[in-house]
Design a protein around this nucleic acid. Sequence first.
DNA 1: CCTTGCCGTAACATTTTGTGTTACAGCTAC
DNA 2: GTAGCTGTAACACAAAATGTTACGGCAAGG
Lengths: 142, 142
Amino acid sequence: MAANSRLTIATHVLTWLALAHRRGQEVLTSDQVAASVNTNSVIIRRSLGDLRRAGLVEVRHGAGAGWSLARAPREITLLQVYDAVGGEPPFGLHRSEPNLECPVGRGIRPALNQTYGRVEQAIRRELADTSIADVLREALRN
Amino acid sequence: MAANSRLTIATHVLTWLALAHRRGQEVLTSDQVAASVNTNSVIIRRSLGDLRRAGLVEVRHGAGAGWSLARAPREITLLQVYDAVGGEPPFGLHRSEPNLECPVGRGIRPALNQTYGRVEQAIRRELADTSIADVLREALRN
DNA sequence: CCTTGCCGTAACATTTTGTGTTACAGCTAC
DNA sequence: GTAGCTGTAACACAAAATGTTACGGCAAGG
């Protein structure tokens, strides 16, 4: 399944909420969002749950329930979304512990953590540079 | 299994080859390498196969066979290793095509590809900045 | 030239993770 | 109270990474 698509799904959800709001739709149900993403509404509710816990969306219960953005699209960066959905780092260390008798086996993990940490920071910098407003604008150009 | 560990394994292999060479070991068999990584030798041969196709290591067949680096450790960057093992991008797009009736569903993928492309470039810049010699030095500090 | 030790790779088992689906209790506006 | 949607558990399914076994192929050295 290649890389995971949670960041993509969550961003899609937020972007759709942003456009709907601009069109006068106060709230959207998970079914309405699912129709745009083309998947099951439980998947969407799971994603929206992550986003709610991160304070990026709000939910209204009971009759006439639904979801809306908790802040302006330009105030939501993809980095916040990335953190909200619990993105995993791109590279994993050894699945099973390397041989600690070997000098390389002993020192490789801290060495790689250093480089992988720099990579992670670079990713975060780029994600922080794009907002939902940016994505919406770019999406509508197509 | 979280993220995949191919880059980690391949880097470990190269680092171990670099240290062995410095210690006077001309070549290492896949079994010897596997002992340091603590995994099956077939896994190592698969990784070494990738590295050989990328021109980073050389193999000697027949009796007394084994592997050695094809160039100096400082001339091998983690970016080359990343490309050799065919790293996948960190974020995937939608698994199933979004609803093209929706403006967001229609435009979201090119919009995200733009951002994801910038992320990929940032990753590559960082990886290009670390060599096997760097990893070896750092590993031996521990 | 043939034996020996290792490579190269196919085939399959296992594990892990992501995703999709069904079901149902809980909440709130009306 | 009732209708409509959320929140989440439980399970099914698919895909990918990793581990394992097996065996043909190659080349150095006798």
